[in-house]
Amino acid sequence: MSCLSVSLFAAIMNNEMTIPEYARLCKNLGLDGFDLGITLIKNHTPKYIAQLKNEIAKEGIPLIMVTTYPDFTHPEHLQREREFDFLVHDIALASALGAKFVRVTAGQAHPSTHEEDGIGWAIEYLKKAAPVADKYGIKLVYENHAKPGAWEYIDFSNPPAIFLQIAEGLRETSVGINFDTANILAAGYPNTVEILDAVFDKVLTIHVAETATFGQLQPVALGTGIVPFREIFSYLKSKNFDGWLCLEEWANKGREGIQESVTFARQTWTEA
């Protein structure tokens, strides 16, 4: 079990908390690893990377996943090429820090991008990125994503039907799935386990995430929204899932919110 605390992004970016301090917090909560958003890693200079990697090692807890935001559905070809080069950089950066996974996205739902084109572009570029990740010992995990603060539009593949088409197009590659437990409901589809079952053989990581609203992503503390965690966890146990549960904590309650999320996830997994 690891944690991506979106609640603490601002504190880390504003230098109110360091990445090693965040890693220490996760370790003290008994987690097996911690996750980072790519925007939290300041640069790729040798001195900074060596120092950060050494500081993380001293905390004695591994970096599991780095979340990135490639926009391969952008209507302009040159920008899609830029997005690919940005992702190559992010993969190399995650590798330099010893991460195991890099979370990738299809891209934004740009108004001028047609569905068929967007699906084709996402598959094309993610396929192209797979051997790069393989070279660096990184596993790419494609997510049924919603909308980060870094984007103007919601994810192009937020609708489950589009997500499944892209996932199918990547089936014969090394790209796995990071399945988000909240985003199927946020997309307005009622059956999360049905979509999870359709891609389970490629699922390597789970974003244990919550939403308060059907048809819209409204992050709240784990266990206080509408996500059927017991059903999802029971399904995962029935399939002998042995990958990572990556808590996407977004309660905006600071350290207390992370503690509550960890406690809820552990208890619910045990009871499922």
Rank of each mutant, 00 (worst) to 15 (best):
I123Q: 01
Q79P: 00
V262I: 06
G188V: 10
I19E: 10
F229M: 13
A198M: 15
A186G: 12
L93Y: 08
D90F: 02
N240K: 15
G176F: 02
E116K: 14
E83H: 04
Q218I: 11
A10W: 08
T192R: 05
A182F: 00
T263I: 14
Q267N: 15
W250Q: 14
T213S: 11
P190R: 12
E55H: 09
P131L: 05
L8I: 11
G149P: 05
A133F: 07
G243I: 07
G149V: 05
E115L: 10
D32K: 15
L170M: 05
F156R: 03
L25S: 04
K58A: 15
K239I: 13
A92S: 09
E260M: 04
H114G: 14
L222I: 14
G107A: 10
K58G: 03
N240L: 04
T224Y: 01
G30C: 10
V132T: 15
G149D: 08
F101W: 13
A161Y: 11
L87H: 00
L164W: 02
E116D: 14
V66T: 02
T73A: 07
I61N: 04
T39V: 14
D201W: 11
H74W: 09
M1Y: 09
F200M: 13
F264M: 05
G120N: 12
G188N: 10
P111C: 13
S2V: 05
N158Y: 04
D90R: 10
G215Y: 10
E76Q: 12
M13G: 05
G225I: 14
N28D: 15
L217G: 03
R266T: 09
E83F: 01
H207Q: 10
I258L: 15
E83A: 04
A221H: 05
P159D: 06
F214E: 04
F72K: 01
D201Q: 12
M1R: 08
F156E: 01
T270G: 00
R82M: 09
P70C: 06
A50C: 06
D117C: 04
A251Y: 04
Q216G: 00
V193A: 01
G176V: 09
S157N: 14
W244E: 09
K42A: 06
Q218V: 15
L8C: 06
I232V: 13
L97A: 01
F264G: 09
E83N: 07
F34N: 02
Y189K: 06
D134A: 14
L126D: 01
I56M: 13
K127N: 14
K58N: 11
T263W: 01
A150D: 12
F214H: 07
V227F: 07
E76Y: 12
A209M: 02
N144V: 04
I12Y: 03
E172A: 12
I56P: 03
V199A: 06
Y142P: 01
T18N: 11
G37F: 11
L78G: 00
A182C: 10
L217Y: 13
Q165W: 02
H207S: 12
E143D: 05
G254Q: 07
I91L: 05
A23H: 07
S2D: 13
L31M: 15
A92Y: 07
V175W: 00
T181M: 02
S7A: 07
R266K: 15
K27C: 07
I123H: 01
E231W: 02
L185M: 08
V199S: 02
A99R: 06
I206K: 08
K100T: 08
V141M: 05
S174I: 01
C246N: 15
M1E: 06
A186L: 05
N178E: 14
